[in-house]
Structure formats: C-alpha cells, structure tokens
Computed example of a mutant assay.
Amino acid sequence: MTELEDRICGAILGAYIGDALALGPHWYYQLDELRATYGPWITDYTEPQPGRYHAGLKAGQSGQAGFILDLLLQSLTEHKGYDEADFCQRLDDTLFPQLDGTPMQGPGGYTSQSIRETWRKRTLEHRPWGQVAGLADTTEAAERILALAVRYALQPASLARHVSSNTALTQCDTTVMAMTTAYASVLGGLVRGEPLDAETSGRLMALVRDGSLPFHSVTSAGEGTPPPGPEAIHHAGHFPSPDALLTVSCIARAAADPGCQIEPAWKVSLVYGMPCAVYHQFPAVYYLAARFQGDVESALLHAVNGGGQNQARAMLAGALCGAIGGLQAMPERFIQGLEHHERRLALARTLAGQVLADQAGSVET
C-alpha cells in the first residue's frame, strides 16, 4: 500500500470509527451523567442506554451518518466518481423509505433535523432535488462529503465544486456551506500529504488565488466584490469571505502553543461548545487534529469523552487524524470492533485505487 492509499483508507476508516465510538455516549450534555454511566474514561465501543439516542443498537454499529456515508461511498466507487443523480436516487430508494419524519427513528436510531427536513420536502411535498435543502446549521453534510474530499483530494477545484454541490442538497445556509467546503479542503490537503500546521491556511489561500477554491480573497490586490445571488456559490470566488479557511491555522497555532493548550484535551467541548452547530464543531475538530496529529486513538477518545455532540466531533476529527496517520495508525481493536469493517475497508481501498488512477492520468474533472 502506498502512502497515499494509506492516508485515504485512514481518513475513511477514521470517520466510520469516530461515528461508531460515540454511538453509546452520544449527546450527554451533563458530564457527570456521562461518567456515571460509562465510567471515568471511555476507551472502546459501547452500547446506547435504553430510552436514549440510538437505543437498541449494539457496540460498534453506526449512526445514520455512517449509513449515509456508506451510500455516497458506494455511489463513488460504482460510478468511478461523483454522480449526483445516482447519490440522490440512493437517498430516495434506500434512506427515505425507512424514515417517518420523527427524530428517534430511521437507520442508526436517530434522524437529524437536516435529513428530516429534506425527507419532508422530498417525500411529502414531492419537491425536486435542488429545492429541498433546509437551514439547519449542523455538520450533517460534512459527515458525508468527507468522502468527496478524499476522492478528489488531488483535484482541489473538483473537490470544492462537488462538495459545495452535495452540501446544497440538504443545507442551504451559505455560512454552513462555506465552513463545510473549508473542512473538506483541509481534509483534501491532509490526504495529499500536507501537514496540519500554522501554514495550512496559507496553502489554502493560494488555491483561492489560483481559482481552485470558491472563496473570495477580499485582501488580494485587484479583487472585485463577488457577484450576488445563491446561484453563484458553486463557482470560484463566490463564498464572500475566506475566513472559514483561515480558522484552521489559528487553531493549529493555539494547539502548538504551550501557553494556551486545553488540558485535558477533552475539554475542547467546553471551550468551543458542546452543541451541534458548525461554529462549535469545526473549531473543536481542528484543535483535536492539530493537537494529536496522527495519534488517532487519542484524538478520538478525547472527542468522545467531551460529551455533547461527540459523534460529529469524533467522526470529523477521525477523518482528519486518519488522513495524517494513515490506516496504520488505527488501533486494531477499533477496526475489528467496527461493524462491516471488511466491506468498508474494501470501499476505501477501491476509492484509493480510483484516486491513484486519476493521478496517473492527471485527470481534473
């Protein structure tokens, strides 16, 4: 396995593992209750408690984010690239028939606000795709587009185009879209082998200036203001601010600065906030990844033990740290304890093969 293949498989498995590790202790906002239920430090997969989120599922199984990630990976590998119509059809045929519009139901035992809203508009109101997105400010889309970030890591312009388009299927808030695309761009850089450090934002801004990433470089000489209108969001220069790209290096500097480290690191959830919104989740994810780098186990366990929306925190941090450390950095107990790990690893390896094939052909689609 090449280093690139190792990073690709690490990112994908890291996401799945993070999602499953937090299944049992998901959404405990009272940390005393979390500790009383699962002990002082969670170290492995656990079962949800009766009457709580995901009740009835077993240790090592996935939440709905993992289920949807399966659908996108299957589409990507079968079509050798992103086919949006096919992915939407999979949601229509495979996910939506299992939903009824209520939260505590559906694959994974819980359905997010974002997916419920999309289901309602698509299934009950019969709106076409492109008219069903909602305003939920969560990382719902980020938890699936990480597969697109990995698939198109070597093609930053394609990465940004496909990620923003896929995000817009279910989320239409442009700030959420900008922050989701920024996260994908960071992940893509890590898959390419770039470090996560104080210079990450500078490398991303270079991609803005060459037109690869869809952010408006407001401080560049000669830049005009981006044209208005939601139809512009998929084109380079039309997210109005690059701040979502600048956040990551600010946090990476803090993580490396002994004078402002968060100790213990699980308290990142207290510093940035436990809730689900992107402005709580992405900073915490960047901190954990910058702090622990390729130490996947430490990043995941601190993400999970911080409580609150630890499932998204662990899933997104797992992808970043998995891309840095590769599959070889993944604890064997995490791989073996993950449901469907053999099938999911096979999908990751197929995806890696497609990335290598694009690299050999120098394809930008």
Rank of each mutant, 00 (worst) to 15 (best):
L21E: 06
Y110H: 12
Y286E: 02
H54W: 03
L345D: 08
A357P: 13
R313K: 06
L95G: 05
G63N: 07
A141V: 11
A157D: 01
Y16N: 01
Q155F: 08
R333Q: 12
G202F: 15
S362D: 08
K267I: 10
A277N: 03
V296C: 10
V304C: 08
G24A: 00
L124Q: 11
G108Q: 05
D257M: 01
R127N: 02
I251N: 01
A11V: 15
T350W: 03
L338S: 11
Q74L: 12
A15P: 03
A160H: 01
L99W: 03
R203D: 03
A317R: 06
L73G: 13
L154N: 07
P25M: 05
C172I: 08
E194K: 10
N305W: 11
K267E: 06
L345G: 08
L204W: 13
P264Q: 15
Q30W: 10
S185N: 05
G63W: 14
W27F: 14
R90G: 00
D92L: 01
R349H: 11
Q281G: 12
P242I: 07
G229P: 09
A312N: 09
T2Q: 07
K58G: 04
S158C: 13
D19P: 02
V296H: 05
A221P: 14
A141E: 07
P228E: 04
G353E: 00
T175I: 05
H238D: 02
H162K: 04
L91F: 06
L204N: 13
G306N: 06
G353Q: 01
R291K: 14
Q74M: 07
L356G: 00
G202S: 14
L246N: 02
L351M: 11
Q105S: 10
L187V: 01
M1Y: 04
D295F: 05
I335G: 02
V150T: 10
Y82L: 10
I233V: 08
A317Q: 04
T37D: 12
Y38E: 02
P228A: 15
H235V: 13
R7G: 05
T180D: 03
T181K: 05
T138Y: 14
L345F: 10
P230S: 13
V218G: 08
I251C: 00
G193L: 12
W266I: 08
S165G: 09
Y53A: 12
D295A: 07
E3Y: 12
E231N: 09
V355A: 14
E339Y: 06
G109I: 03
G306D: 07
A277H: 11
E78F: 04
K121Y: 12
